Simulated assay, not measured.
Amino acid sequence: MNDTPDDIEDDDLAETDVNVLTATVTADEAGDRLDRALTVHFPDLSRARLQALIAEGRLSHNGAVITDGKHKARPGDYSLSIPALISANPEPQDIPLDILFEDEHLIVINKAPGMAAHPAPGTRDGTLVNALLFHCGESLSGIGGVLRPGIVHRLDKDTSGVMVAAKSDVAHRSLSELFGRHDIDREYKAVVRGAPRYVSGTVNTRIGRSHHDRKKMAVLRGGGREAITHYRLEEVFGTVKPLAALLSCRLETGRTHQIRVHMAHLGCPCLGDPVYGSGAPAREVQEIVRDLEFGRQALHAGLLGFVHPITGEKLKFKAKMPDDMVQLVEALQDM
């Protein structure tokens, strides 16, 4: 069987409930193995726990992330971010779901923006998992673990659109294999700052956790995993020059934050993206975003297609852009 789909291999990156420990390694302490040297400064952590945290990219030295505890300790300031513990058993919650399809094996929903896929530090409840536990009861697949029952892939909390969850273990395994092989049709709508240089194109890079900020993903020259996004320009907004644009993006792979990272890599980040939207849009666009109180990345998973893991039927589900993105596009058309 394939590895766990890359959509859910990373923990949520935007953590809020964390405990940050700091330590200063002196010149006398330098030269020893880093994990061994830091156990003196963090006596409440076992060496094994410390090694695991370092491997997760939670240790930084003078601002640079370190992921290998075998390195030699160097003089300077170290910062260790420890995630808060969350409940091991999410509770069912009666949260309305926009259900596009459901049978005894799977459920397809149109996820609203603002709903996290599963509990994580900073988002303990109100998630899709909490809603599915209430709606599906004991039929929900348990392969994803107690925190992610039924979850096969994930949309970011503030990304809206089509998601599928497994209600049986056999469906979970089969869907995971489809996602692992990238044998899934996925198309997104994105409203971006400016516009790409070409009407259509393909972004093919490697994406991994940022070397400078573990809460972000980044395009990497080495390491990471291959990430491929095909885009098509649908509409350009702005009379003199492109100030914003509506794109369709089709995923060939599914890395964490892939479209958001790739659009930023093109110099056209999603409007409203709080993490990858570096650089302010044009004044007219800023005013529209502010007046509409548009407070999320303008990204919507509009299409999801796959072969039913049990029946073999070809399924394709579409979800229209939610009202906030529709209003954003209409306001940009009126500039």
Rank of each mutant, 00 (worst) to 15 (best):
L246R: 05
M115N: 04
P75L: 04
D11G: 14
H182C: 15
T205S: 10
L38Y: 00
I86Y: 09
A14V: 12
L38C: 03
G302A: 13
H61F: 00
L247N: 00
L80W: 00
H262W: 07
D32F: 05
D98N: 11
P75A: 13
I228F: 10
G279P: 11
V20D: 03
D17T: 13
K241I: 12
L53H: 03
T4H: 08
G150H: 03
V329S: 12
D156W: 05
L80Q: 04
K316N: 10
E91P: 01
I107E: 02
E138R: 15
K216L: 06
P5M: 14
R74T: 10
D98Y: 01
L59A: 09
C268Q: 05
I143T: 06
S79G: 11
A131V: 05
V25Y: 02
A37L: 04
I86N: 08
D68S: 10
H182I: 12
L220Q: 02
I228Q: 03
K111T: 01
F101T: 05
Y188C: 01
D17P: 03
R47G: 08
S139Q: 11
N89I: 12
R225F: 09
G57K: 00
D35S: 14
D291W: 11
L233E: 05
F294P: 08
A190K: 01
G302T: 06
E313L: 10
H61W: 01
P196M: 11
T4K: 14
K189L: 15
V146G: 14
H257L: 11
P96R: 07
F317K: 00
D169M: 07
E287V: 15
D334V: 13
N204R: 10
L178G: 04
E187Y: 02
I143L: 15
R74Y: 08
H71F: 10
D273F: 07
D125V: 07
E187R: 08
E102D: 04
C136L: 11
N19C: 08
G144T: 07
M1N: 12
Q93L: 11
E287K: 15
A218E: 01
C268Y: 02
E91Q: 13
A37W: 01
N19H: 12
P92M: 13
A88T: 11
L243W: 09
M1T: 13
P242I: 09
P322G: 03
K320D: 15
T127W: 06
S60I: 01
D10C: 12
V18A: 09
I95D: 07
H61M: 02
L38D: 00
A298F: 07
G238K: 07
K157V: 12
T16M: 08
K241V: 14
A165N: 07
L247M: 09
S176A: 14
